[in-house]
């Protein structure tokens, strides 16, 4: 119980700080929209072929936008040595990690929920037809992104070239999770239901989330404290 309260307090603190500055949110959203625009030059936006790669495109946008949010997650604590204070506080490192992951998760989901309708308009897809299954995939995929992104945000926070190291380390690790999310998203975003052949991918995505949440919770103390 205490653990959950601590995690929620950290998440609320992060979200409050973000609401006031909006630095990660603005950067991430603007970046997502710019990439959506750039994609329209890479191929014909209204062509039938676009529908076949829609899921992949969206998750690329989300992964890029996510990296901007996750970079800030721990970097935000660097001024005034806030990170040292947080680590020294009675908050368990795992609770600190979970709170930060939760805050990044909510922020990234918010960015995605703005990007989705924009995608629907620009690329002429009826993404609301399968709304709830789509939300399920969105939540599972975004959690996969944030759970790995947050632990590596903690790991890279004090490094040289932090902004470059995070995506370089995180994207290859994310391959299975992103692939599952892309497979699932492709039919859903153009309004087709999930076929039973895709249930295995749903299981893979959920399993990916569980494995890496457990691994991150187990290792975060090693990363932050040693």
């Amino acid at each position: 119980m205490r653990f959950v309260r601590q995690a929620l307090a950290i998440a609320a603190k992060d979200l409050r700080a973000e609401m006031r500055t909006k630095e990660a949110w603005n950067a991430s959203l603007a970046f997502a929209l710019v990439i959506l625009l750039l994609f329209s030059f890479a191929f014909e936006p209204t062509a039938e072929q676009t529908r076949e790669i829609a899921g992949g495109l969206l998750w690329l946008v989300f992964a890029f936008a996510g990296a901007l949010i996750l970079n800030r997650s721990f970097a935000r604590e660097l001024p005034n040595d806030c990170l040292d204070a947080l680590v020294a506080s009675p908050v368990a490192p795992a609770a600190l990690y979970l709170g930060k992951a939760l805050a990044s998760f909510l922020l990234l989901t918010a960015v995605e929920l703005v990007a989705l309708p924009v995608f629907g308009v620009f690329y002429n897809v009826r993404w609301t037809a399968q709304f709830w299954p789509l939300m399920l995939v969105l939540v599972l995929g975004t959690w996969a992104l944030t759970v790995i992104g947050t632990i590596f945000s903690a790991l890279t926070v004090n490094l040289r070239l932090r902004e470059l190291m995070l995506p370089t380390l995180v994207y290859p690790l994310l391959v299975p999770g992103l692939m599952a999310a892309m497979q699932l998203m492709t039919p859903l975003v153009v309004g087709q239901p999930l076929g039973p052949e895709l249930y295995d991918w749903l299981k893979l995505l959920a399993g990916f989330d569980i494995i890496f949440t457990a691994l991150s919770l187990a290792l975060v103390e090693t990363v932050l404290v040693g």
Binding site: P172, L173, P176, L204, F208, I211, F212
Partner: peptide, 12 residues
């Protein structure tokens, strides 16, 4: 992390 990821990558 990398070693845990490799089998999942393989299966997926």
């Amino acid at each position: 992390f990398a070693f845990v990821d490799v089998p999942i990558v393989w299966f997926s």
